[in-house]
């Protein structure tokens, strides 16, 4: 996965897409790759996950080899115009910038092409070994990835049109670009992930792998489960409370909840694996009990990913 040069990390809302993107970036940087992590929706979740403070359009090095930026399509347009039309970089684009905001909201694919274009350009210019994108959620990512094709179909001439061909080549080269789908072992995330795998075909972008987040550890093997079944019977649990010196009912109740939660999730996991078919990379990240967020959580997820990748 980390051998590619451009990874789009996506998934249904709430599954931990940003956490996985941040952890992949951190892992790559710690393994020696010059890495850029980029948040496309400028919500600030990615810098927050890395505890990086404010992050803007200009990439900033957070720790050795780990760079972060937040996408800003207007800045991207300015950079593009400066590069290709040799227009002055700032200020004079005032009215154009305002109109642009407008046009970008109205015309399909304009924002997307500026986002994808900027990222693809960083890859083409070899500014980084790896660019990890905290991309749009699974419902919108196809539009993002398909932007160059969409523009190709809509525009017949113009500077933008001339740019789309190399972008398409870069995006559809499986050695270069891949999509990482983050899923949680729950009904809707699994369903959306499988739907997205189908829709990816229309983009020509390869699936680099699926990361299943928040996998609960198996509490008991079969022999243990039998013992547990006997322990919950009244006589046994009373004896156990006596031996412990404190009531154990709630401890047993919590274990029952953990077992059923895991069982429900295991069924969704099985459906995911079956739907993906053989030959796909699937990485598992365990449920983190100690920390839910923050740098510590990212480090732990990065370690879990490293173990899965090795």
């Amino acid at each position: 996965m980390l051998a590619r040069r451009l990874l789009f990390v996506t998934g249904k809302g709430g599954v931990g897409k940003t956490t996985i993107a941040a952890a992949l970036g951190l892992l790559a940087a710690r393994e020696g790759l010059r890495t850029l992590v980029c948040e496309v929706d400028a919500k600030g979740d990615l810098p927050a996950a890395l505890e990086a403070g404010e992050v803007g359009f200009t990439a900033r090095e957070l720790e050795p080899r780990l760079f972060a930026m937040a996408m800003d399509t207007e800045e991207s347009l300015k950079e593009y115009l400066a590069l290709h039309l040799h227009l002055p970089r700032l200020s004079r684009l005032g009215p154009l910038a305002r109109t642009f905001e407008f046009l970008a909201n109205a015309a399909p694919g304009v924002k997307e092409i500026l986002t994808v274009g900027k990222l693809a350009w960083e890859v083409r210019e070899r500014h980084y070994d790896l660019v990890v994108v905290d991309a749009a959620a699974s419902g919108h990512v196809v539009g993002q990835l398909r932007a160059p094709q969409a523009i190709n179909e809509l525009l017949s001439v113009g500077l933008v049109r001339e740019q789309t061909d190399w972008m398409i080549d870069l995006l559809t080269d499986p050695a270069t670009t891949g999509v990482v789908i983050v899923a949680a072992p729950e009904e809707m995330p699994v369903t959306e992930s499988l739907e997205l795998v189908d829709h990816l075909d229309s983009t020509g972008v390869d699936l680099a792998g699926v990361v299943v987040n928040r996998v609960l550890p198996e509490l008991f093997g079969r022999a243990e489960e039998e013992v547990f079944a006997r322990l919950v019977e009244p006589a046994a649990s009373t004896a156990l409370s006596g031996a412990v010196g404190h009531p154990v009912n709630r401890v047993l109740g919590a274990a029952r909840l953990a077992v059923t939660l895991r069982r429900t999730r295991a069924a969704h996991l099985a459906r995911l694996r079956q739907g993906l078919g053989p030959g796909r990379t699937v990485l598992y990240v365990p449920e983190l009990f100690d920390r839910g967020h923050g740098r510590r959580a990212i480090v732990q997820v990065a370690e879990a990913l490293a173990a899965e990748l090795s």
Partner: peptide
């Protein structure tokens, strides 16, 4: 003029 060059008149 800029818009024409960037996006093309037809679009």
């Amino acid at each position: 003029q800029v818009a024409d060059r960037v996006l093309g008149t037809v679009f």
